[in-house]
Simulated assay, not measured.
Amino acid sequence: MTSRLNPYISFAGNARDAMEFYKNVLGGELALNTYGQFGGGTGHDDRIMHAMLETGSGFTLMGADLPPGAEHTPGNNFAVSLSGDDADELRGYWDKLSDGATVAVPLEKQAWGDVFGMCTDRFGITWMVNIG
């Protein structure tokens, strides 16, 4: 397997909902594994220990619910960026991601010439979309 770099997002008990949402946005195949499948007994057996979404566009997004006892502390130092020149594809992602989201920058032409938008989705994840 070729090495790759991809986001791995931690959730506070709603990883299944979030990853299914991202599958709806981006398409692709979603694999979900629960804590219960790998021994369980933690009281969190139905929560997601590992999720991986692989899309036809070559995107890979991973995520999981934090293990029992771990504190969820979201920050503002992380965003997922989608960029390219397929305006229809990227606008489609934006429309779904920004539905119910907090839009910080509307998807519109920017000073550098590209169309760009930034929003924080219903799961607290910041997304940037740039259409070149």
Rank of each mutant, 00 (worst) to 15 (best):
N14K: 05
G117W: 10
R4E: 14
V103K: 10
E108V: 01
I9Y: 07
D17Q: 15
Y35S: 10
G84F: 03
T55R: 07
E89V: 01
N130R: 03
V80A: 06
A87Y: 07
L90V: 00
V103Y: 09
L5V: 06
G117V: 01
L5T: 04
E89R: 13
N33C: 11
H44M: 14
G39I: 03
G100T: 00
N76M: 01
D95I: 00
L97Y: 03
L97Q: 02
G56Y: 01
I48D: 09
L82H: 14
L66Q: 10
N130T: 02
I48M: 02
G39M: 06
Y22E: 09
R91V: 00
G63H: 10
A51C: 05
K96N: 03
K23T: 06
Y22F: 08
N6P: 08
D121H: 05
A18Y: 01
F59S: 05
R122Y: 08
I131P: 07
L32Q: 04
T60C: 14
M19P: 08
Y35W: 14
D95P: 05
V105N: 08
V25N: 04
A87S: 15
K96Q: 15
P68S: 07
P7Q: 08
M52Q: 15
A87P: 05
W112A: 11
I48V: 08
L82Y: 12
L82F: 15
Y22I: 00
G132I: 04
K96P: 10
V80I: 11
Y22T: 00
R91D: 09
M52K: 09
S98Y: 01
M128Y: 05
G124W: 04
G40H: 08
G28C: 02
C119A: 15
M128N: 13
V105A: 08
A64P: 04
M128K: 10
R4C: 09
G124T: 00
L90D: 06
G40K: 07
A12Y: 04
E89P: 02
S10E: 15
G100D: 06
F116K: 12
H50K: 03
D95L: 04
W94E: 11
S83L: 03
D95Q: 13
I48A: 03
Y8R: 06
G58H: 07
M19S: 06
L53S: 02
F78C: 05
P74F: 03
L66E: 12
E108D: 14
A64S: 15
G41N: 10
P106I: 00
G132F: 13
P74Q: 02
V103L: 09
F123A: 08
D65P: 04
Q110H: 08
S81H: 12
R91E: 14
